[in-house]
Design a binder for these strands. Structure first.
Lengths: 343, 343
DNA sequence: GGAATGTGTGTAAGCGCTTTCGTAAGCGCT
DNA sequence: AGCGCTTACGAAAGCGCTTACACACATTCC
């Protein structure tokens, strides 16, 4: 079973089975050109010896590679960890190992990490962070990915990017419209937005959806406060504080992700503002804890694990002539954090 | 910058710089034996061409490998994703790529995943899931890891295992004592435990700590209900429901992780049992959302990201003669979900 | 000044596997 | 029996890199 010194190699297995390493290789990799008898024997011997082929040697020789890369902003963030869960699930099913990198939200890191993944000859790379509105931001990454694709690599992104690759698109625009319509339908007119950096396409898209809903109701986004802060829990706190201080008449806050909504709720609790009686709060994403907050958060559900699954599946398909895009649905989830404004 | 067909190889760089591939290799890998002049030129040319060395070829030739593996139960679970965040952080700092596998909580998967990591010749593997009380459960994994270590691999686990390797130990026993002492000090005597599978060492250890606190107060764990259910949010719901139904006099519930506590709170909310007035609830771990629940959860904070960091750092150190263990601190975090029982 | 050192460079031997290619063997047919 | 055909198998050529090892060429020392 366990070997003491040197690892077991293919030749050891071949020898033990009394065949050439070519035959052993074919038997173990399941390729054609071996009799069933030999294949069976080799596999048996390999199992008995506990042999596991060296993935590096394999992909060096065969050019194949059995791993894929996933790039996220921060794996500790539930939004990304749920996406990662989807990716890992599909990966395991397909017999692929997944290398995860996180940029820690520092844009410069992205290039470094993408390079590392490419150096590891991953079969595909999945990029899950939000893109930037300004296409120039990711020029270097785009360039790198182009080379990667040129030599047979596959790339898929989750969310809008300017990378010209296959993409799984969360329903950011329609979702933004839906949640805004919901808040409007409750009767709110003095609505404020807690937004992440407007440079992020995710933020821009959700806001665009909101704008659609608002103009349908005869309102203009430009007339409403859109407070920009980091796209995190802490950013939510800061945004909420500013809304309270600078726009005291506000009756509803739409946070552009759940994390910010959680931060907003924290500030409201601290300041003794009852939710939803005095202030409605809505989020976006429906991370797992949203339903357990106090009050439970009204939000838009995005199928995060599914986003991850779809992205990997897409990347694993043979390359298409033109970038594919695949939209995913969203669903309004009304819970306790929103209600009609006090009359 | 970008290449069309075949990837750029070391020979291309060497040629472009007018040196041998040996010199180029030395220059790029930073090893000794090249003049500064040549090293600089090679690096310059490489950067200009956008050359990135093939990690597979590198580790096959050099035996080095620049990646590590992390095994968790479920990456979508905040407990694990925060650990992963710590691991990825250190990994990035050390220039290592991290392969993450999750077992999806199916024990059989563990062996498969460990093998995959070993096949990828990772430098180290970190196992973050809880171990099992019964050592036999992981015999095959242990065997596999022994072989891995025999050929120079490093292994570290987070939590108690019977794997005989370096370990970072969360403060499960002392933490169990602390949280139980807290509940006792509020005056509760009719305490119930919502526990994950008793097969898990994490659960067993936390319970052992609870027992210490109880006997110090003249109580016996055996006299108190310990309801076993899956170590998840859903398990927490089931456990809470049973406690309510079968032990109606209970005034405080100690859930053995935050996830279960969240489930318990959900059931209490549904059934209209006010927390903490009628039922105190305590958790364990202090995942990021614990403070944002309603009511905010009293719990024991474990430094999860740090656990991940420590584990990787430990695994990267040269092997010691005997397995190292490193304890991490815990801290009681009292929030709104616990209070004195109604007199 | 020649041996003993040290440094920088190139040549070539692998790392453990896959895969092409050549050969041998098995098959059905004339 | 002899012909082509298919199929099973092994020898050997790499995959892209690192790293002995060999070899100059400067130094330094007696």
């Amino acid at each position: 079973m366990a070997q003491q010194g040197g690892r077991l190699r293919l030749v050891d297995v071949a020898e033990a089975a009394g065949v050439s390493i070519a035959a052993a290789s074919r038997a173990l990799s399941g390729s054609k050109g071996v009799s069933d008898a030999i294949a069976a024997r080799v596999r048996e011997v390999a199992a008995e010896l506990g042999y596991v082929a060296d993935a590096h040697a394999r992909s060096l020789a065969g050019g194949a590679s059995t791993s894929v890369g996933l790039l996220v902003h921060e794996i500790g963030d539930p939004y990304f960890s749920e996406i990662a869960s989807g990716v890992l699930g599909v990966g395991a099913r397909e017999g692929l190992t997944v290398q995860i990198c996180h940029t820690g939200r520092e844009p410069d890191n992205e290039l470094v990490q993408v390079r590392a993944l490419i150096a590891n000859r991953v079969r595909a790379v999945i990029i899950a962070g939000s893109g930037f509105v300004d296409p120039r931001t990711q020029l270097a990454v785009k360039e790198e990915l182009r080379g990667f694709q040129g030599s047979g690599g596959r790339v898929a992104v989750i969310g809008r990017h300017h990378l010209g690759v296959d993409a799984v698109l969360p329903d950011n625009v329609p979702g933004g419209r839906t949640i805004t319509e919901h808040v409007l339908s409750l009767g709110h007119r003095r609505i404020a937005f807690a937004a992440g950096s407007l440079e992020l396409t995710t933020v821009a898209d959700r806001l665009a959806g909101a704008e659609q809903a608002l103009s349908a109701a005869g309102l203009a986004l430009a007339d409403l406060p859109v407070v920009e802060a980091p796209f995190t829990r802490d950013g939510g706190k800061r945004a909420m504080a500013r809304i309270l201080d600078e726009h005291p008449g506000t009756t509803a806050v739409i946070a552009l992700n759940d994390d910010m909504a959680i931060g907003a709720l924290a500030v409201l609790r601290e300041r003794g503002v009852p939710v939803p009686e005095r202030m409605s709060v809505a989020g976006f994403d429906d991370v797992a804890v949203a339903e357990h907050l106090a009050p439970a958060l009204t939000t838009v559900r995005l199928p995060m694990a599914e986003l991850g699954e779809q992205a990997l599946l897409m990347a694993l398909k043979p390359k298409s002539a033109r970038p594919r895009r695949r939209a995913t649905p969203h669903r309004l989830v009304v819970r306790g954090s929103t209600a009609a404004p006090r009359s």
